[in-house]
Nucleic acid binder design. Structure first.
Length: 223
DNA sequence: ACCCAGGGTCATA
DNA sequence: TATGACCATGGG
């Protein structure tokens, strides 16, 4: 059996999990807020916070800029890290409104917008790339903890690779379709949520065949 | 009572 | 540049 490619893995994941249609949000701004709130946090907790924000009519940049930070902290409390995240939401809202909102930011070249997002405190590579991919439909591959875990376990990447190296690995081996990038990351998260990539590997893992074929590499990389 | 989750920052060596 | 402490809640 030939060595599995990222596209092979995509096919397997899609066959098992089906269409994902990400990101779950009703607007680009909601998507961006969700991206910040979900940092090192379960999505279920983010849903509580989003729900709180909607009920309080606070899920818009104007309200976030004019409210008392403590009120914001209370609403997003379930996501954890609520003090720093409240600051991050406010700072991001400031940036967002200062540049004409979604419509204004939509006109930025991808590279320039990414670089600018990274200068905002609390927005790192993954959050920036998620925003580019899902709020602006830019062709940017998102690397998260699941990506590292699953693909290093499959022996396709090394655990020592940094964010950019992993990102390049996928970009060089995938067709240039933004839609594919969106689905792929969604599938990786869906797969990561099930503990198939943990050890011991479960038998009905959709990647079981690939895992088995990579068993040798896998064992070596764990030493 | 532990462990971790759809990260990021900052201090230290 | 690379590792580690820290941020903090909710669910297993």
């Amino acid at each position: 059996m030939r060595r599995a490619s990222p596209l092979d893995v995509y096919e397997q994941l899609h066959a098992h999990h089906g269409d994902q249609r990400w990101w779950p949000a009703e607007s680009p701004f909601e998507m961006m807020i969700g991206a910040i709130l979900t940092q090192n946090t379960r999505w279920e907790n983010v849903e509580m916070a989003i729900s709180n924000l909607k009920k309080a009519n606070m899920l818009n940049p104007e309200s976030m800029l004019s409210c008392e930070p403590e009120q914001l902290e209370e609403l997003i409390h379930p996501t954890g890290f609520f003090r720093q995240k409240a600051k991050r939401l406010i700072e991001f809202s400031r940036f967002f409104t200062a540049h004409g909102g979604t419509e204004g930011l939509k006109r930025w070249p991808t590279k320039a917008l990414r670089a600018r997002l990274l200068t905002i405190n609390g927005i790192g590579p993954e959050t920036a790339d998620s925003i580019l991919l899902y709020a602006f439909d830019k062709m940017v591959f998102v690397v998260d903890a699941y990506t590292k875990r699953i693909f290093s376990r499959l022996g396709m990447i090394k655990a020592s690779m940094n964010y950019e190296e992993i990102q390049n690995y996928f970009i060089q081996r995938l067709p240039g379709l933004p839609q594919l990038y969106q689905e792929y990351h969604a599938l990786i998260v869906q797969q990561g949520k099930c503990n198939c990539s943990a050890k011991p590997r479960c038998d009905d893992c959709p990647l079981f065949e690939l895992c088995s074929s990579a068993a040798e590499t896998d064992r070596l990389s764990e030493l």
